[in-house]
């Protein structure tokens, strides 16, 4: 999908054309689902959150301003919804084993030992991301899995670029710190103790 097509579908969808809106959903369901999954940590809630995000997108289509990228606007709606959902969830805990990510990943040409190590490492990364405070988790997810710049992350989250810099820095510090105490460490170069505070 190029920018001209996207704009065309957007205008049609704003006039109530549901087929055009369906095309926008198809174009952005991957990034939105991925963000929801990384934020909520399980597929059932991620699917529900993805649907809810697109329903909200449809209801707010006429308020969308083209000064932001459409993807950033949708991710912003998704991240706010996920943060609200995490707040409502409060004390509830979600098992990391609820759905192995590896099952949803494309086939990989590797030996059993390498595959096992890779899956273990992935689980460790996923677990470490899930333990982050949502305020730090969102920018990290947007940076690594959506490849957004600081400015784009700032647009999505309604923050300043300076705040994004600071949150990404804090997110990394928290992950390194967690790795030094976790039973399933990220496998970073030993020793893992964090020597330099923020």
């Amino acid at each position: 999908m190029n920018a001209i097509q996207e704009l065309e579908w957007l205008k049609l969808a704003q006039r109530g054309d549901r087929a055009a809106f369906a095309r926008l959903v198809q174009a952005y369901q991957g990034p939105v689902y991925n963000l929801c999954y990384r934020m909520l940590g399980n597929s059932v809630e991620a699917e529900d959150a993805t649907q809810e995000t697109f329903l909200r997108v449809y209801l707010k289509l006429n308020t969308y301003s083209q000064e932001h990228k459409l993807s950033s606007w949708m991710l912003s709606i998704a991240s706010h919804y996920c943060i609200d959902r995490l707040r409502r969830r409060r004390g509830e805990t979600v098992s990391l084993d609820e759905e192995p990510v590896a099952a949803a990943l494309p086939a990989h040409q590797a030996g059993p030992e390498e595959t096992a190590l890779t899956a273990e490492a992935r689980d460790a990364v996923r677990g470490a991301v899930e333990k982050l405070d949502p305020a730090y988790r969102v920018p990290l997810i947007l940076r690594y899995w959506h490849d957004l710049s600081y400015q784009e992350i700032a647009d999505v989250m309604g923050l300043t670029v300076q705040a994004v810099k600071s949150r990404l820095h804090r997110a990394r510090l928290q992950m390194i710190e967690a790795a030094s105490t976790s039973e399933a460490p990220l496998g970073l170069v030993a020793p893992l103790g964090l020597r330099h505070g923020a």
């Binding site: 369906a22 095309r23 959903v25 369901q29 689902y33 991925n34 649907q51 690594y144 990394r172 170069v189």
Partner: peptide
Amino acid sequence: RWRELDRRLLATPAIPAPVDFSALVL
């Protein structure tokens, strides 16, 4: 350690959407 963390985060792939959400949303 920071570079290793970065490498591992980059090496963890994105999760593809399991279904086509367009029909569900419509």
